[in-house]
Amino acid sequence: MKRRLKVEEAFFRVMMNLSTAFILLILGVIIYSVFEKGMKAISWEMLTSIPSGGYYYGKGGGILNAIVGSMTLAFGATILAFLIGLPVALYINVFLHGKKKLVNLIRFILDLIWGIPSIVYGAFGFTLMVLVGLQTSLLAGIITVTLFILPIMIRSMDEILRTVPDGLMEATYSLGSNKSELAFKIFTRQSVSGIITAVLLSFGRAIGDAASVLFTAGYTDNLPNSLMEPVATLPLSIFFQLSSPVPEVQERAYASALVLTVIILIVSLFSRGLGKRYHKTKINF
């Protein structure tokens, strides 16, 4: 009996360590294979020029259109989502403070929206677009992506705002301030690090998602210069180049994947670094 227990425990410990090692290994393999393939194909020209004629048959040019396009789209959507999201998160935590049932219901709905696949947003955005007579454009892409990252933004900010201690709230009230002051002056300042993390997290989502921009943002070889024109995005440029039969173009898809991965890694590093840095302004209890 005793021995069987020991064997069982040893067996599961080995399995546990194997699973943990497997996850670490997989991450390593993903990063390695993307870097290894991408480094071979990447060049300065690729990063700094737009596709020239015959680019999709392996001739010169680059993916600047997609890099700039993705950045513009993700920035636009993040800013818009921030402008809508911060008030919602503050409202939940300041004005609805104490109304537990209602707050829980709102959080629940937000979690539900978070779970909706991005392709559904894509289809929805496309329908809206057709309804109001809009073409595939930067604007339509921004609106769709905003809807898609909104729950992520609000819920991550909410998780931080709800940790603001009641004592701080009461102290602010006792000094005679009203709810808006409490929300925008105290809560926001107290949660700067968390808000930055939320914004960067949403930005990462926005720049990496392809399914929601597939029908709404369109694709173009030019740099974006108007809200009403189509815009190229990195995920889609990877996808399109990869489906080409020409080997050189496929190589470029790997290089584009490298660019996207590096952007994501930088964003995630930044959110860790900034989060730590602004922690200092926080009053600790």
Binding site: I26, V34, P235, I238, L242, T261, I264, S268
Partner: peptide, 14 residues
């Protein structure tokens, strides 16, 4: 965090 952050297209490439 990193695994969750990698875009789905990159997973596809991989």
């Amino acid at each position: 965090d990193i695994l969750a952050g990698i875009p789905s297209v990159v997973y596809g490439v991989w």
